[in-house]
Simulated assay, not measured.
Amino acid sequence: MKAILLIGHGSRAKEAKDVFIKVSNGLQERVKSKVYIAFMENATPSIEDAFVSIREDGVRYVDVLPYFLFEGIHIKEDIPEILREMKEKYDVEIEFKRPIEYHELIIDILIDRLKGAGICI
């Protein structure tokens, strides 16, 4: 059984978590695998909490999808280290995907925000 773990940075702001959950629900509607969520810090569930749920559900393969724009320290070091620990502790196969980085759709989002702000383009 395969699943997706969507990892966000985390924030103490309730609105930030609400948006993240909305993104994960939207993702869940478009994929066949079950989507789990986790946060790097400042919110729950933690990455390890998510892996507890993942293993309880019998999942053996996890695609880890970081909801981060760039390859900062969390993507380069922190999350890979946690994932190494989770792989060993919970006996799961993990594939760590790339962060969002550049994508043409980001430009569309920015244009949409400009239009919403009443700015002529």
Rank of each mutant, 00 (worst) to 15 (best):
K89E: 11
L110Y: 12
A13P: 04
K2W: 12
I82S: 07
M40W: 11
D57Q: 04
D112A: 14
F96A: 03
E77M: 10
D18Q: 14
K34E: 10
K97R: 13
G10K: 08
P45I: 07
S24N: 09
A117Y: 12
G116L: 10
I7V: 15
M86L: 07
D49Q: 14
R98P: 02
P45N: 10
I7D: 06
Y67M: 09
K17E: 14
P80G: 06
E56C: 08
I4T: 06
L83I: 04
I79F: 02
E93G: 11
I37Q: 00
I37A: 01
H103L: 08
I75P: 00
R30W: 10
L83S: 02
V64D: 03
P80Q: 04
C120E: 15
V19D: 15
S46Y: 08
Q28N: 07
L83N: 03
F20Q: 02
L6S: 07
A16Y: 12
A16G: 06
D91H: 12
I7F: 09
A43N: 12
P80H: 04
R12V: 08
K87W: 02
P99V: 05
A16C: 09
L65H: 04
I75H: 03
V35D: 04
Y36G: 00
R55A: 10
L83C: 06
V92N: 04
I107R: 14
V52P: 01
I82W: 06
I47T: 02
I82F: 07
V35T: 01
I94Y: 03
E15H: 10
G118V: 04
V35C: 03
G118F: 03
V92E: 06
A38M: 05
D63G: 09
V64E: 03
V35F: 07
I4K: 01
M1Q: 13
E48P: 00
L110D: 07
V23G: 06
M40N: 06
S11D: 06
F96R: 00
E85V: 10
V64Y: 03
K22M: 13
I121Y: 09
L105S: 14
V92P: 02
E71Q: 13
E41K: 11
F39C: 02
R60K: 15
G118S: 07
K76Y: 09
F20R: 01
R98C: 03
G72N: 06
E41G: 05
R84Q: 14
F68I: 01
L6C: 10
L5V: 03
F70H: 10
D18M: 12
L27S: 03
K2M: 11
K87Q: 12
L65E: 06
R55Y: 09
I121M: 12
E48V: 00
K14Y: 11
I47G: 00
N25H: 13
I107C: 11
D78E: 10
P99H: 10
D78M: 03
A117H: 12
H103I: 09
V62K: 00
D49L: 05
E101N: 13
D63P: 04
E41C: 05
K115Q: 13
Y36S: 01
L27T: 03
D78R: 02
V35N: 01
N42Y: 15
I109W: 11
A16P: 01
D108W: 08
I119K: 12
F70M: 12
L6P: 00
E56K: 14
K22W: 14
I47P: 01
E29L: 11
R113M: 08
V19M: 15
K22R: 15
D78Q: 06
K17R: 15
Q28S: 12
A43G: 05
I75K: 02
